[in-house]
């Protein structure tokens, strides 16, 4: 039943992205009084000034880290569908930790936020891995359910007990300024996260293709039975890959807090977990491919937000783009030689 994710090809990625753009153009045509200005906003505006460009790169960084989490899980043959929750709950946990200990020297404060966020994400992901390893519960279902159960709890904390009533936003209090990640490229919110993301892509690439661990992970993902007979321990990889995947999602959440929002806000993840799956698949589950596809996605996302001013329903446009890409990215447009 479990079919392979590496099916399809680079061509599938390209066609999926082109189809998504085509759908976007059509929808913008429907929903916008001035089609041409919406088009210009969608395609050109993200590149026109420092603010848009920087924000685009900033969101590219976050997308990339979450996508690396997906690359690791999917390469290991595990479906982590709990990204949304891992990002959100991780971000909230990191924020709460940062708020609880406000007086640390800056760098330690930032590290505290990031570590708590990653650990929370890793715990959530690892739990699904554990259920799978112990009892064979499909991680595909449990990771989603766990995430869906916890998001309302996180929302409850943000609007309720952890809410900062002095702010008009539905959000927690802000982290102390010393914990914020340094920004470069003002006035955009591009910050150190971007560099971290690129570095992580390089690290995941090395790990995946040049270490024994990465080799074992890939073999495990392609043929669990063979991996077991080669002395690769299943527990390490079911728990490890799901934990690492969740951890990278949690880290994404933590970096979004420390770099951009400086607090946990209602509706925090906003679909980035789903986008990450699309990014990873468009990048053919390759860490370096993910860099390119994260950039592409961030561009599409920025375009969507920019064209929002020109149409009535653009907020959902992002979701539709994700959907179209996911529908087609694993498709085989060429008849495979392989029958099984």
């Amino acid at each position: 039943m479990r079919d392979r994710l590496t099916q399809g090809s680079f061509r599938s990625s390209l066609l999926a992205v082109l189809a998504a753009i085509a759908v976007t153009v059509i929808l913008l045509g429907f929903g916008s009084p001035s089609w041409s200005s919406a088009m210009r906003a969608f395609f050109v505006q993200p590149l026109t000034n420092r603010f848009y460009l920087g924000n685009m790169l900033s969101s590219m960084g976050y997308l990339l880290i979450a996508a690396l989490g997906i690359v690791i899980a999917f390469r290991c043959g595990l479906y982590n569908l709990g990204g949304e929750g891992q990002i959100f709950v991780g971000a909230l946990a990191g924020t709460l930790a940062g708020l609880a200990l406000p007086g640390l020297p800056g760098i330690f404060g930032t590290l505290l936020v990031l570590i708590v966020a990653s650990a929370t994400g890793a715990l959530l992901g690892g739990l699904s891995g554990l259920f799978r390893r112990l009892w064979g519960a499909p991680e595909l279902i449990t990771s989603y359910l766990l995430s869906a159960a916890l998001i309302p709890a996180a929302e409850y904390l943000i609007v309720g007990p952890a809410n900062d009533p002095t702010r008009s936003l539905l959000a927690t209090a802000r982290l102390s300024r010393a914990y914020w990640l340094p920004r470069f490229f003002a006035p955009s919110d591009l910050n150190l996260s971007f560099a971290i993301a690129i570095a992580l892509a390089g690290i995941v690439y090395l790990m995946m293709f040049y270490t024994v661990r990465g080799y074992e992970l890939r073999i495990f993902g392609l043929n669990e039975e063979f991996a077991t007979y080669s002395g690769i321990h299943p527990t390490t990889y079911t728990l490890g890959a799901m934990g690492l995947s969740g951890g990278l999602h949690g880290l994404t959440g933590g970096l979004m807090v420390a770099g951009t929002y400086h607090a946990a806000i209602s509706g925090f993840s906003g679909g980035i977990g789903w986008s990450a799956i699309a990014v990873a698949l468009v990048g053919r589950l390759h860490p370096l491919g993910a860099i390119v596809s994260a950039l592409l996605f961030a561009y599409l996302d920025a375009g969507t937000k920019a064209s929002m001013l020109h149409t009535e329903f653009t907020f959902e446009l992002g979701t539709v783009i994700q959907a179209v890409i996911l529908l087609l990215v694993t498709a085989s447009f060429v008849v495979s030689r392989r029958s099984s």
Partner: peptide, 21 residues
């Protein structure tokens, strides 16, 4: 011949995107 799970996910997202639109 898309991956069944990824396409299923897409179905959910498509519904979530199209209905409000």
């Amino acid at each position: 011949r898309s991956n069944i799970f990824v396409a299923g996910l897409a179905t959910n997202l498509l519904a979530a995107g199209i209905v409000p639109t």
